[in-house]
């Protein structure tokens, strides 16, 4: 016990020293460099759209998914986290409900629905869909907006990111950026 108590003094001072180094100096140093070198990313990759009167309007982070349900928009993944087993009856009912919703939205389409459109993500705010899921929606968006399918596909291609090094991860389409562009809004990255 005496040996233990003798260790308490260095323990307290050492923890304070480590708090200063790892908590204060390290955090402030990283924040400082981040704000100087990557201020846009460090502050949430916020999309600020320039309006006609010269002012700016924020539409939130490019990295956080937003809910779209209108036929004229590219629609993202379900905005929830289920934590359900994929084999459970609850989960299968949820997926079936989403399949029906997509069929209602676009009765003319005979294509199979890509899986990411009927499953929820791990974050609940996945900003992306797969290129296949975007392509599936092109005819519907083009018809709703009365523009050509090529125009819609061109916008989608513009906001498609590939795999890192060509083989790491999966390609993805940023839903919000596509929709902002479809609405004719512009912003600076």
């Amino acid at each position: 016990m005496k040996t233990f108590l003798k260790q308490l003094r260095p323990a307290i001072i050492c923890l304070l020293a480590m708090t200063l180094i790892c908590g204060v100096i390290y955090t402030v140093l990283v924040t400082g460099i981040a704000q100087l070198a990557f201020s846009k990313q460090a502050n949430g990759s916020i999309i600020a759209v320039s309006l006609e009167d010269g002012s700016k309007k924020s539409y939130g982070s490019a990295l956080i998914g937003q809910e779209f349900t209108g036929s004229e928009y590219l629609i993202g993944r379900p905005m929830m986290v289920s934590n359900l087993s994929p084999n459970s009856t609850e989960q299968q009912a949820l997926v079936q409900g989403r399949i029906d919703w997509w069929k209602d939205l676009d009765p003319g389409s005979s294509a199979d629905i890509p899986i990411d459109l009927v499953t929820a993500s791990g974050s609940g705010v996945d900003p992306s869909i797969s290129p296949a899921a975007a392509k599936y929606q092109v005819p519907r968006i083009a018809a709703a907006r009365n523009i050509s399918e090529d125009q819609v596909q061109a916008i989608i291609d513009k906001y498609t990111s590939g795999r890192f090094l060509g083989f790491v991860g999966e390609p993805s389409v940023n839903v919000l950026k596509v929709n902002l562009t479809l609405d004719g809004l512009s912003w600076t990255d």
């Binding site: 993944r77 986290v81 289920s82 934590n83 359900l84 994929p86 989960q91 997926v95 890509p114 899986i115 990411d116 499953t119 929820a120 993500s121 791990g122 974050s123 996945d126 992306s128 869909i129 797969s130 990111s161 991860g169 999966e170 993805s172």
Partner: peptide, 11 residues
């Protein structure tokens, strides 16, 4: 396709 429930598109 595979099990995408609870997974992000990028991954």
């Amino acid at each position: 396709s595979g099990n995408m429930e609870g997974k992000e598109v990028i991954n």
